[in-house]
Amino acid sequence: MQLELQNIKKSYGESDNRIEVLKDINLSVEKGEFVVLLGPSGSGKSTLLNIIGGIDNADSGKIIIRGKSMSDMDDKSLTNYRREHLGYIFQMYNLIPNLTVRENIEVGAYLSKNPLDIDEIMGVLGLAEHQNKIPSQLSGGQQQRCAIGRAIVKNPDILLCDEPTGALDYKTSKEILSLIEEVNQKYGNTVIMVTHNDAIKNMADFVVKLRDGVIRKSYRNEAKQKAEELDW
């Protein structure tokens, strides 16, 4: 078992304004699985992803990663945990504006003792010809590819993706999803992707549907589709 969530609860606000965002979430993820957290806005999916990523805290409950409880980790250990095991992709790319594509990917490589080959990654991501461009010279899709490169170059155990196609058009979205799928298959990372796009669930190994902070449904996807076959 790579990741296990036990009784995760999270709320925001105080007294009358208190909103329970996550209500007793339990979840187990196997190594190498492609997990999709699906739900409408406000369902708590991004909060759950952030808690898994160690950038937000649960009010109660336990997160166990590779047999180790995250609740026992202090700030420094959490940073180390992210450094060694996690890769992050956001809806917004948050690239460093004055570094080139290659250098932005190096930013991720720097964090790893055994990073993947940057040229290979750029090849996989189709960025080789753009490697000396700065982010403002790239399209949205290219910028997101670069962000993916930055996340995967350190070969993380778990790749967390928060609406990675949220700001992209249909065609580019499918390209990005294909890339993430390829990364998952090629490098064997566990992928946890948050989306509100129902169609994306079809490419997942494991689908978790959230609404109002509760897992309404979770299941292993027996009829897994390739990203390029998706349609919405």
Partner: peptide, 14 residues
Amino acid sequence: ACVIGTLRASGYTR
């Protein structure tokens, strides 16, 4: 802020 947040999330130490 966003870049710093992303780098922190990626594992860069403070």
